[in-house]
Design a protein around this nucleic acid. Structure first.
Lengths: 174, 174
DNA sequence: CAGTTTGTTCAATTTGAATTGAACAAGCCG
DNA sequence: CGGCTTGTTCAATTCAAATTGAACAAACTG
């Protein structure tokens, strides 16, 4: 009877992650939080970023001790953002995931999706306010009307500048 | 006996805000959330942005129906970020606040405080990970070591680019 | 087909941040 | 001084987002 140097149980060989990987998981987890994504989303990416082979959802859940549900929603988000790729490994039926390493591209995507959309939104809402002001003109004292008008104009100007700025920024990023 | 057309109670004449102002309060509130600040902080700024005169803390609380505590912490944060100014109005003993309208300047401040600080942080942490990798070299298979090393190098490169990028961005902003 | 594994969805729970409100400190006024 | 107003701090509460876990669906396996 051979001396078992390691637990060689039938299926699970969870083999703890090396510290480097744990640290990167943590870093990306925090980074995600900072960008107001769920921490777990960042952790998944951090885990896969240093993986030497694609990992399956159950493996990911195991390694990070998070639930099936979280892995499922987390990977979905990351796929949608283009941070992860699905990989069909041999004739396995499981899904496998790998990190997209080209983070530069991702920055661009994020910029387009988040920043640009927000700018548009802000634009629309600011227009709405100006309309409201026009509607209310009668109910406001002339002084108040003038003051508000001036300040809204300020905001609009600022926004115009921001808009001019964006293509420049885009060129730099790309 | 004159007919009271309005409630002329002894002290509080809360006079509801015009719709324009409410809308801007809402916009700035949401914007704050988007930038992961407390909504109330954005609302306070939005309120003051269209105020025709400085407002006291109790007035702010009243207008937004938020508590003394929130007003106190909110104004503190906004003052710290430079979005608000304290104004000593005549010989009043209350503090009065007014919005700093130069939002362009504020963008600069925010950039310095938030973005720059984050970049530094990421930097430090990435260095730490590389050190950990060096420590662990012995415990990793040569292949894994090589792979991790390569990927960390990628991140470091990305970060260098980001760093080079920053002064450019700064020049554009200023 | 029954049994197993994988993955999704959603209601319940947990967790963490924002907000409240009460206790306290400080300044002013009669 | 005693009462009144203002402002801060902090513990308790509330609220929203993230996470879990259970129920379900789908795909494969013997």
């Amino acid at each position: 009877m051979a001396i078992a140097t390691q637990d060689v149980s039938e299926k699970a060989k969870p083999k703890p992650l090396p510290r480097v990987r744990l640290e990167l998981v943590d870093i990306f987890g925090r980074m995600a939080q900072g960008l107001s994504f769920p921490r777990s989303v960042g952790e998944i990416y951090g885990l896969l970023y240093l993986a030497s082979a694609p990992m399956s959802a159950p493996e990911i859940g195991e390694a990070l001790s998070i639930s099936k549900g979280s892995v499922s929603t987390g990977t979905r988000q990351l796929l949608a953002l283009g941070f992860l790729r699905k990989v069909w490994l041999q004739k396995e039926r499981k899904d496998y995931f790998e990190a997209v390493l080209e983070l530069g591209d991702m920055v661009r995507t994020a910029y387009d999706q988040i920043f640009k959309m927000r700018a548009q939104n802000a634009d629309r809402r600011l227009t709405d306010v100006s309309e409201t002001l026009a509607d209310e003109k009668g109910e406001l004292s002339p002084e108040e009307y003038a003051l508000i008008k001036e300040r809204l104009a300020r905001l609009t100007k600022l926004q115009k500048r921001a808009k001019q700025f964006m293509p420049l920024l885009e060129r730099l990023i790309k």
